[in-house]
């Protein structure tokens, strides 16, 4: 019985030590584990001078309503917002199908001194809402969306 208790204590303390060390590692790396930054976070980084110009970064947020503009030579521009700060993005190429105004988006690229984000690729972010189109229509009619 005492042997069993010793073993249990040994295993549980091993688990505790491992959990704490993994927690410490994840905490130290938290800035690298996040997949993207919101416009506010990027703004903060620029203000605190911790973001090097032209360094690779991911910007995530909502595509602002009626902000997608088709430019010449296959460029498009749009505005990413987190309903607090906004950043203008320029991108050349074909965005994914889900890329729409009012939808989540993640742009990969770098931000210049003029606060314009030059994206090398664009990912569409899908939210956790799943519903049939008819339901969405009714929700829209009732002003939920």
């Amino acid at each position: 019985m005492i042997k069993r208790k010793k073993r249990a204590i040994g295993i549980i303390s091993l688990m505790l030590v491992a959990s704490v060390s993994i927690y410490a590692i994840l905490w130290a790396l938290r800035d690298n584990i996040v997949f993207f930054y919101s416009p506010s976070e990027i703004n903060q980084k620029i203000l605190s001078d911790s973001l090097e110009e032209k360094s690779f970064i991911r910007l995530g947020g909502m595509v602002k309503e009626s902000s997608i503009v088709k430019l010449n030579n296959g460029f498009i521009s749009f505005v990413v917002t987190d309903f607090n700060k906004e950043i203008k993005v320029i991108f050349k190429g074909i965005p994914p199908d889900l890329f729409k105004e009012g939808q989540g988006v993640i742009a990969e690229g770098s931000i210049g001194r003029d606060y314009t984000f030059t994206a090398s690729s664009i990912l569409a972010k899908h939210d956790e809402n799943y519903m049939p189109p008819e339901v969405e229509k009714i929700l829209k009619k009732e002003g939920f969306e």
Binding site: R30, I33, V34, F35, F36, Y37, S38, G60, I106, L123, K125, H126, D127, E128, N129, Y130, M131, P132, V135
Partner: peptide
Amino acid sequence: FWNTLHQSASISKLDNPTIHVDM
């Protein structure tokens, strides 16, 4: 915990799931 490309859970909040009942 972190910003991810993957969407968050739709069903873990059982009282108010964000997935339609037909799905």
